[in-house]
Structures are given as structure tokens and as C-alpha cells.
Nucleic acid binder design. Structure first.
Lengths: 194, 194
DNA sequence: ATTTATAAACTAATAACGTTAGTTTTATAT
DNA sequence: ATATAAAACTAACGTTATTAGTTTATAAAT
């Protein structure tokens, strides 16, 4: 004896992501979402644990979509080139999916296991991209944090309209990545000297 | 004939900043704020244009406090040292005032003149800190964007609990700044070669 | 074909919030 | 003492999220 088939989580998350991208994360409400789906807002509780539950799932959904984008981008690339490609795919994702990207950081429970794991997959990917740089274990962790900070910081500031001056932002980001990569090589050279 | 003297904006913003820091930006509501101030929520409209107006003012307040912190930190410093000091003061501010720092990015109208000016002061400060690196005009703008991205990205990720692994975060950030500075020197060396 | 179990979707109701309108209060300058 | 202007108030409304309880539809079992 099985129940009737209604909405599924995937449909709900896609609709929520669309609202986030088009109207901003603030407008991802149960009221607006349910209207878009053609149901009443209490019905959403059959699929998601309230607004917080929706935000949690949406954050996870966003991270896995980001991961899919990144891994497709770096296939067949290595070394400096892979770093540039990874970075550019990251900010490109944030531009294409501003709301979903924002949702990634709006999880009510950042310590949730599923969410952590989705984030860890991205970290592991960045670790692999940085492997050719021959960093020791600790330095590798530091470098991953660095590259994530660069990508997220740039994407976030760009989204918030932080770059007022009319100077090409792609060039800015490319130069930032080049500076980072050059710095990695340089620090490695210095440590090899000893 | 002057009116009675009630609350002033400064008091309101300080209370709002405290709520933001202690309970998160989501709890900066007119209801909670007015309760903390011992007045009814509609009375806040005498000082601030609703919740959006409060958020706008709070963002501006946060930027000026950040600017004050940064400028005090870099006084008497120059070159690489000034960059390290600036960056560390930045993330230190974000740690001490997590909610107020977050508020900085939650202005309903990012294009507002007063807010833009508050942000521009910080940009100008970073420009001056990077002057010793002898960058041409465009490169200087790119470098400022880069350093801002690094600082904001790191602060933001740290705040969101993005760094799971138990490896010292201060070391991570220091190394990121060192990588950036080394990269700047290296790129400069390369461009001088021609 | 009929029955039945199950979950999806519903209605109704409540509490909290932001906001507006209109009234009262109170400190100060005359 | 009095008039004024703004601060603070009460009352009310619309919108949310949320809970409780009811109805409905569908897939499987008879």
C-alpha cells in the first residue's frame, strides 16, 4: 500500500534555486515557493522541515551543483592551468547562480553531516588540483584555504557590487590567481633553497 | 521650541550591533531591538526608516568602524609589513564583530552614496598601503581588489565554519598574505625584466 | 473491480513580525 | 507659564512561519 505521488524534493529545490537566483535569497520563503509550485505553504512540510529545513537542503544542493561544475571544468587540466580554470569556473558559477551560491552559506546548521560532506568533496577536489605544487601536508591545507578564500572573496564582493570602478573584473581575478600561483612557486623555491 | 530628547541614532546602532554580534544578523529585528532599548517597535520609525533603513545605517556604521580599526593598525607601518598588519587587523575585526561585519554586506541599497563613500575610504586606505609596490594604475586597482578578496574571503569562510580541519587558521591566513605579497614582488620582477 | 493503507495536500488557527495611522506625552525655548 | 515639535505610544492590518487536524488521491493487495 503506497501513497499518492506528489511533489518530489528535486522539483522543490529547483524551484527554490530559481527564486533565489532571480529574486535573491531573501525571497526564498515558504509562501513564495508554495505559490510558485501551486500548492499551499503547509504542504511543503511534507517534504521539508520548515523554512530552516529548506535552507539546509538548498545549501547542500548548491554545493553539489558547484562541485559538478568545478570537476567538469578541471578535467584534463593540471598545474597552473588547472588552478586558473578552477578559479574561473568557481566565479562563473557564482555569477550564473548568485542566489544558489549565496544559499550555500545560509545553512541553519553548518555542522550537518550531509552538508559537511558536500563541502568536503570540493575541498578534496582543490587538494588534488594543488598536488602538482609539491606542498607538504600542512602547507597543502593552508593553500587550499587560501585558494578557497580567494575564490569566495572575489565572487562575494563582486556579487555585492563591491567593485565600483569600471576596470575589467575578469582581469582582476585572473591577476589575483596569477599572483597566488606565482607566490606558491616562489615560496616553494625559497623553502627548497634551505 | 525644541522637541523632547529621546534616543539618538548612535545608541540605536550600538544596540543593533551588539545584537548582531551576539545573536547574529537574523536577529536584528525591530521587535528585538526595540525591546532591548525599552521602547515599542513603532517608535523606532522616528529614528530610522524601518528595518531596511536600520540595515542600511548599520552597514555604514560597520564600515566606518572597520575603517577606524584598519587605519589605526597600519599607522607607522609600510611595505610588506603594512600588508600583513592590514590583513590581520581585517580578519581580527571580523572575528570580534561577526554580526556587524556581516551587516556590512547586508545593505538594502548598496549604491547609496553614504555607504559607497564609507567603502571608498577603505579602498583608498588599501591603495596607500600598496603604493610601495610600485604598481601601475590599473595593476594597483587589481591588487586592491585582490587583497580585499583575500581578506573578505578568509574572514567570511572562517565565520561560516568553513575550515573544518584542526590546523591553525592564523597560520593559514599569514601564509596566504605571504603568498600574495611574494606573488606581487614576482610579477613586478617579471614585468621589469622586459 | 473493490478495498485499503499511506502520505500528500488541504483548511483553520495562532503567534510573531513589519508597517501605517492617529493620539498622547514631554522636554525645551520663548 | 505656555506653545511647539518631536518622541513615544496604542490600535490595527497584512504577511509570515508553523501546528493541528481533516480530506483526498493513488498505488498496491485482495
Amino acid at each position: 500500500m503506497t501513497p499518492r505521488t506528489g511533489l518530489d524534493l528535486q522539483t522543490i529545490l529547483e524551484a527554490a534555486a530559481k527564486i533565489a537566483d532571480e529574486q535573491g535569497m531573501d525571497n526564498v520563503t515558504l509562501a513564495i515557493l508554495s505559490k510558485k509550485l501551486g500548492i499551499r505553504s503547509p504542504s511543503l512540510y511534507n517534504h521539508v522541515d520548515g523554512l530552516n529545513g529548506l535552507r539546509q537542503k538548498l545549501a547542500e544542493y548548491g554545493l553539489t551543483k558547484l562541485y559538478d561544475t568545478l570537476i567538469k571544468a578541471v578535467i584534463g587540466k593540471s598545474g597552473d592551468d588547472a588552478v586558473f580554470t578552477l578559479g574561473e569556473a568557481y566565479v562563473h558559477f557564482a555569477r550564473r547562480h548568485p542566489g544558489l551560491y549565496e544559499a550555500t552559506f545560509h545553512a541553519p546548521d553548518p555542522a550537518d553531516t550531509d552538508l559537511q560532506q558536500a563541502g568536503q568533496e570540493i575541498v578534496d577536489l582543490v587538494v588534488r588540483v594543488l598536488e602538482p605544487f609539491d606542498l607538504d601536508q600542512d602547507s597543502a591545507v593552508h593553500a587550499v584555504r587560501g585558494l578557497r578564500s580567494i575564490c569566495h572573496g572575489f565572487a562575494s564582493l563582486e556579487q555585492k557590487g563591491g567593485f565600483g570602478i569600471p576596470l575589467d573584473v575578469d582581469t582582476s581575478f585572473r591577476m589575483l590567481l596569477e599572483t597566488f600561483v606565482a607566490g606558491l612557486h616562489e615560496l616553494k623555491r625559497l623553502s627548497n633553497k634551505k
